[in-house]
Nucleic acid binder design. Structure first.
Length: 979
DNA sequence: GTGGTCTCCTA
DNA sequence: GTAGGAGACCACA
């Protein structure tokens, strides 16, 4: 290569995505193979080769190469394991086109370059440098900002879609910095799509301004303490190291060892017409085939279509754990409103990125918040929401419990900084013992709701909330069913379960770089704490309006990431519908018999008191039995019993397991302690606590389910937790008799039998297990028989028990240590069992290994339905942390798929019951693999088959499991008998 | 009052 | 060995 030569470097990988999203879908006529990106690519390359002079570039290439990414793993992952950890799977109809575009490149007789461990961008940087050093010029065919750092006197970029050349002035205009400063700029802003951390709260505008002022990143970071804005200064100091790492991630390598030299990129003047035509014919691109034929003087009719192999796999595409979650089933909810479209957002990834970048740039202006105190103004806002089609809403109340809370007011937002608070029930300060009077000038609650109701139920206005189940339930109590809606907490949960928090403050910090006013600052804390209705209107407005403002901004930033990461259907089909389904369940509650519990409490108190006397006798004095510290001192100090395990703070453990061992060795006191603990546990946690949760008006207990607090997709229940009501011991089980159906009704309990083992058999594809489930066999006995060669007929209980423990162990990501513990056998023996199990069911070992490998590479694992659970610490250098995360990663697809299945059943249940004339059958509770219903006595027999059908068919049609699901269902007057 | 530790209840 | 929530105690503020 020499002076005057001009090298064209096509960013092949970048082009593929851009073309795919920019061009209308196109399928090969003969077989439907998707080819739109391939056609776009061929047209572009042909144009550049033939008449680049007529384009914005204005020069003819002498050298030409197409560069691709080799794989997702590059040296950047060494610097920062999280790099590109967010990457989503490419769309299904793009996958085959990766290979085809490489084929096309070869058909054009162009060098097709990729190097393991490097991104296309690094190769482009390297070749651009070589070209300039040789005295030539280079044009990079791409519009990716990551490449803009390379722009200079001899290097330009060319956007083929817009036919626009990007030189130094264009970079400066767009980003506010010279191209060489792009590295520092990107280091500051980060990149949420590639997962480059950057510094929170700094977007392109701020970054450019800072670089203008301080010159470069290093200077900026060393002088960060001079910055006036508090948050910005703190962030720059705190995240300085992240910024430096980011710089290394965005800095392109210009010294990649290249096998193909510059000279090999020289264009051959004589295009190989027949070869190219053969390919184009195979693709069935008739227009381009004709053009190429005319230009090369080759008659297309004389050329046979080439044989082109279609690969099913994308480049940089990890092992397939599950089928992609896109596809076949029911349509998304109605009333979906698309987020703002941006002109040059060609892909969901770029749109998501753009919105994330833009978020911190829009400063909060509390002075623009409005306090709405008359119906006319409220009506005006309602009209505004109808126009925008978007409304962020947040309610302010007197309690965290939506079943008890009184509405104090609500806030609305229709655009950033365009937010308002509508006080409804605010009271004057504490000067009056009766709580003071109503603050003047507030819209009446009923009038406000009358205005709001049609809007909140308007199918053309999307309502946005953060933890919307709370507001949904509160408004449901006022006869309003919000729809359609989105929940920013649930969006975040779908995107980042396991790796990040989903609370509003955390989300705001992370995505917007802003700290909202805290609730505490507004209502006070401790003794001086007041309910929200006592807060003066000005402060209340600032706080409440900001919450709505923040929620709207979060939605704008977060929502596009769903599509960008291929998670929209997980959100729409597994997550969002739960808000109203679970909201209804919480609203219904369940009847708990106060008398039964109170009687039990009395009995327990007597029993415990008697036990305490015996314990003091045996211990030779009084002490606090409930204090593990004191108990340990007595048992292992004063009495000199042999201590077993230690707790992590170095204390002797007094766990039930340790005490049981001592009891088995003939010691009386430990036995009594174990019994005492059981009684006091049942009393304090259940019989004493549950009545306190009976709602004063409904007379029922309304638990609260959290939709976003587990990593795997399970729900959790609290206040009270109704997912841990005792069942194992006879004594404990009695507590369930207090959960009853009202007069004339029955409780129905329906639970999945062995759902997790069935999911395991499906995902790990274990023929023996699948067969056993298909045949309806006793799965643990079958396992035992397979492992130990003992016939199922007349099998000793102990043998089956061990197999059962191993089966559970497998689901939990087995370790010899854990199994040994569980079965109270030596670790060697446990290890031998595991080995035997893996030999008998080799697919299990494969499943575990590929799940771990997948998680190590991507940072998450997926359920059968595409839900992701993140385990960033699986790459920890600490072996025990790593092992823990590996076990969790093995468990998550199993536990999570089962959770997805029951969610799907729950979402369909109300409609299925109603369709069968069972509208009076109500789903009340969920306990992971069990659903509890309340039904009129005469409806029970018809309800059970409907419930069973919905639950057993819940995976379909999204997935067809290779094992049947089985549901046992029973009805009774109370939960103990129904279960 | 708040937060950490220990223990124990569930699937 | 997985996933949770809660009560009691206790040291800290």
């Amino acid at each position: 290569m020499k002076k005057g030569d001009h090298l064209f470097l096509v960013d092949g990988s970048g082009y593929i995505f851009r073309a795919y999203h920019a061009l209308p879908p196109l399928n090969r006529k003969s077989d439907g193979l998707p080819v739109s990106a391939v056609l776009g690519f061929c047209n572009m390359v042909w144009k550049l080769l033939r008449d680049a002079r007529d384009t914005a570039v204005g020069v003819t290439p002498t050298h030409f190469a197409v560069i691709f990414d080799y794989s997702s793993k590059t040296f950047r992952n060494e610097i920062y394991p999280e790099y590109k950890a967010n990457r989503s799977e490419p769309p299904e109809d793009l996958v085959p086109q990766f290979g085809l575009i490489r084929e096309a490149t070869r058909a054009f007789d162009l060098p097709c370059i990729e190097t393991e461990g490097f991104e296309a961008d690094d190769l482009i940087a390297t070749y651009a440098r070589l070209a300039v050093e040789a005295g030539g010029d280079a044009t990079i065919v791409s519009s990716d900002k990551d490449l803009m750092q390379l722009v200079g006197p001899c290097v330009s970029m060319y956007d083929p879609m817009k036919d626009r050349e990007i030189r130094v002035p264009e970079v400066v205009e767009k980003w506010g910095v010279m191209p060489e400063k792009m590295i520092d700029l990107q280091a500051l802003t980060g990149d949420s799509i590639d997962n480059v951390p950057g510094v929170p709260g700094i977007g392109p505008k701020t970054a450019a301004q800072l670089l203008e002022e301080y010159g470069d990143l290093d200077t900026l970071l060393t002088r960060a303490h001079e910055i006036k804005q508090n948050k910005r200064r703190e962030n720059l100091i705190e995240f300085a190291e992240k910024a430096r790492i980011s710089r290394e991630l965005v800095r392109l390598k210009t010294d990649v060892p290249v096998e193909i030299g510059l000279d090999a990129l020289a264009l051959d003047s004589a295009a190989n017409g027949p070869k190219l035509i053969g390919f184009l014919k195979a693709m069935e691109f008739s227009t381009l085939t004709r053009r190429v034929g005319e230009a090369t003087g080759v008659d297309p009719a004389s050329v046979e279509a080439a044989t082109v192999e279609v690969q099913a796999k994308a480049e940089a595409h990890g092992p397939d754990l599950t089928v992609p979650a896109t596809g076949i089933e029911e349509e998304g909810a109605e009333g979906e409103v698309a987020p703002d479209r941006m002109d040059d957002a060609d892909t969901p990834q770029k749109l998501a990125k753009k919105l994330a970048d833009a978020a911190p740039a829009d400063p909060f202006d509390h002075s623009r918040y409005v306090c709405i105190r008359d119906l006319e103004t409220l009506n005006h806002w309602v009209d505004e929401a109808r126009e925008t089609g978007l409304l962020a809403i947040d309610t302010e109340t007197t309690s965290l419990d939506p079943m008890q809370a009184e509405l104090c007011g609500f806030s609305l937002a229709t655009a950033p900084n365009r937010a308002a608070y509508v006080p409804l029930n605010h009271r004057n300060g504490k000067d009056d013992l009766l709580g003071g009077g109503l603050v003047d000038g507030q819209v009446k609650l009923e009038e406000a709701l009358a205005v709001l109701r049609p809007l909140l139920q308007d199918p053309s206005v999307l309502k946005i909330g953060q933890n919307l189940k709370y507001d949904w339930l509160l408004l449901y109590r006022h006869g309003i069913e919000i729809a359609p809606y989105d929940d920013t907490m649930l969006i975040s949960y779908v995107l980042e379960a396991g790796s990040q928090a989903h609370g509003m403050d955390a989300l705001t910090e992370r995505w917007i770089g802003h700290t909202p006013l805290s609730y505490k600052e507004v209502t006070g804390s401790g003794r001086s704490k007041v309910t929200f209705d006592m807060v003066d209107l000005e402060r209340a407005t600032t706080y409440a309006a900001e919450d709505a403002d923040v929620t709207l901004r979060l939605w704008k930033v977060l929502k596009p990431h769903l599509a960008a990461r291929g998670l929209a259907s997980v959100y729409e089909r597994l997550e969002r519908p739960m808000v109203s389904v679970v909201g209804r369940m919480e609203h219904r509650g369940i009847t708990v018999d106060r008398q039964i519990l109170s009687r039990m409490s009395g009995d327990f108190a007597q029993t415990a008191a008697a036990m305490e006397e015996e314990i003091y006798q045996l211990a030779g004095g009084r002490f606090t039995i409930g204090s593990p510290k004191q108990l340990g001192e007595i048992l292992f100090g004063r009495m000199g019993l042999p201590g077993g395990a230690k707790t992590k703070s170095g204390q002797w453990s007094t766990s039930a397991q340790v005490l049981e061992e001592l009891a088995a060795a003939g010691h009386e006191l430990p036995r009594k302690i174990v019994d005492w603990r059981q009684v006091t546990k049942l009393k304090s946690t259940y019989t004493d606590a549950l009545p306190g949760y009976i709602h004063p008006e409904t007379g029922r207990v309304h638990t609260s389910y959290s939709l976003a607090s587990t990593t795997t997709g399970r729900l959790s229940s609290s206040e009270p937790n109704l997912q841990n009501i005792p069942v194992r011991t006879v004594e404990g089980r009695k507590i369930r008799t207090a959960f009853i159906a009202p007069e004339g009704r029955k409780l129905i309990s329906a639970d999945y039998s062995q759902i997790e083992l069935r999911v395991l058999a499906h995902v790990a594809d274990i023929p023996q297990l699948k067969q056993a489930f298909a045949d309806g066999l006793d799965i643990h006995a079958m396992t035992a028989s397979e492992m130990f060669g003992v016939p199922v007929e007349g099998m000793p209980g102990e043998v089956r028990r061990r197999a059962k423990a191993i089966n559970f162990g497998i689901i939990y990501g087995i370790s010899a240590f854990g199994l040994a513990n569980q079965l109270a056998i030596p670790r060697e023996e446990a290890g031998a069992y595991i080995k035997r199990y893996f030999e008998r069911f080799p697919g299990i070992k494969d499943y575990m290994e590929r799940t771990k490998a997948f998680c190590r590479e991507y940072g998450y694992v997926e359920t059968v339905f595409g839900r992701r659970a993140h385990y960033p610490e699986i790459r920890s250098s600490n072996p025990s942390i790593r092992a823990f995360n590996e076990r969790a990663a093995i468990n998550a697809p199993i536990q999570g798929s089962a959770a997805d299945i029951i969610r799907r059943a729950m979402m369909r249940m109300d409609a299925a019951l109603a369709d069968n004339g069972l509208g009076d059958v109500q789903m009340l509770l969920q306990v992971h693999d069990e659903l509890i219903f309340e039904a009129p006595e005469e409806a029970v027999e018809r309800a059970i088959p409907v419930i069973r059908t919905v639950m057993e068919g819940a995976a379909w049609p999204a997935r067809t499991l290779s094992v049947p699901l089985k549901v046992d269902a029973r009805a009774a007057d109370n939960w103990e008998e129904a279960h």
